[in-house]
Amino acid sequence: MADVNEIKFDIKKEMVKDHLITGGTFACAGCNPVLGIRLVLVALGKNTIMVNSSGCMTLTATWPFTPYRIPWVHGAIENGGSVAAGILMGLKALKKDSNTHVVVYAGDGATYDIGFQALAGMVYRKEKIIYICYNNCQFANTGHQRSSATEKYARTSTTPPPIGNPLPRKNMAKIMALCGAEYSATASITNPFDFIKKLRKAATMKGSSFIDVLAPCEPGWVVEPWETLKAGNLMVETGMWPLYEIENKKFTLNYKPKMLPVVKALQMQGRYKHLTEQQVTEIQRTVINEWEMITKGRFWEAEEY
C-alpha cells in the first residue's frame, strides 16, 4: 500500500462528530494514553470493539460510570491479544465481523512483558486485529516500575538512581514484524495526524497490525501536565523515538526529525535528572549510531530501534 502520508485525514470532517469517549475519567490531567484512545476512536469510528489490558486505562471506567460510547471490555493484564482473538472468533461465528474493527489498547508492560505470549500468538495466527501499545516506558499504573520498554538509564521505582535502568529497551515493532504482523509501526501521540493515518492504514490490512505509540505519562516522566506533549515531541525530534512503519517486512521511515541534542529531551524529564555527563554522551552516541543504521538501509541490524 501507499505511503502512510498519502492517506487522507480531514480534521474538519471529524470535528462535527460526537466524541466517542467522554470526559470525566479518573485519568490524570494531561494524560496522554487517554488522548491516545480518543485518537484511535477518531481514526476508526464507532464500529470499533476495544479490548483493554489492565492498567491505568482500565480505571477510566468505574461502575456505574463509563466514558465509552463504543463496546469496551477489560479482561486481564496478559491476555489482550487472546481476548481480542476470541471476540473476532465470536463475531465470525455470528457473521458480524465484516464491518467491525477489533482493537486492543494495552500498556507497554502488558505488551512488552506479561502479554507478549498472547500478542505473539495473535500475530502468528494473522488475526485481523489492531493491537495498539500505548508506551509510557514503564508500568505506570502500579507506581512506575521498569518494563522492557524502559530506556537505558531511565529512573523507575525498581531501577533507582544512581544507575537507573541498566538495560536498553526492546524494539517491539520490529519483533512483531518478524513474528508475522502484516503492518507494524511506531507512532507518537505528539504527531496525531501520523498516528491517525497509521491507524487507518492498519484498518485496511487483512492480517494483524501492531502500532507502538509513545504516550508520555506525567507522573512517570516527572513533567508538568501541560509539558507532556512537548516531552513526547522532544523524544521524537532528538531521534530517541523514530517514527517508522514496516509493511510486510518492508521498512519505511515516516518522519525526519530535527536531530536536536538528546540532552534537550533528557533535561525536561525528571526521570533523567540523575544522569551523569558520561551517560548522556553514551545515549547520544547510541542515538547517532542507530540512526545511521536505519537511514542507511541497515534497519534490521539496529539494536534498539
Partner: peptide
C-alpha cells in the same frame, strides 16, 4: 490461558 481468554471474548459476543 489464552484459550480461556478467547473463550471469554467469544462468549461476550
Amino acid at each position: 490461558h489464552s484459550a480461556a481468554s478467547a473463550c471469554f471474548g467469544a462468549s461476550l459476543t
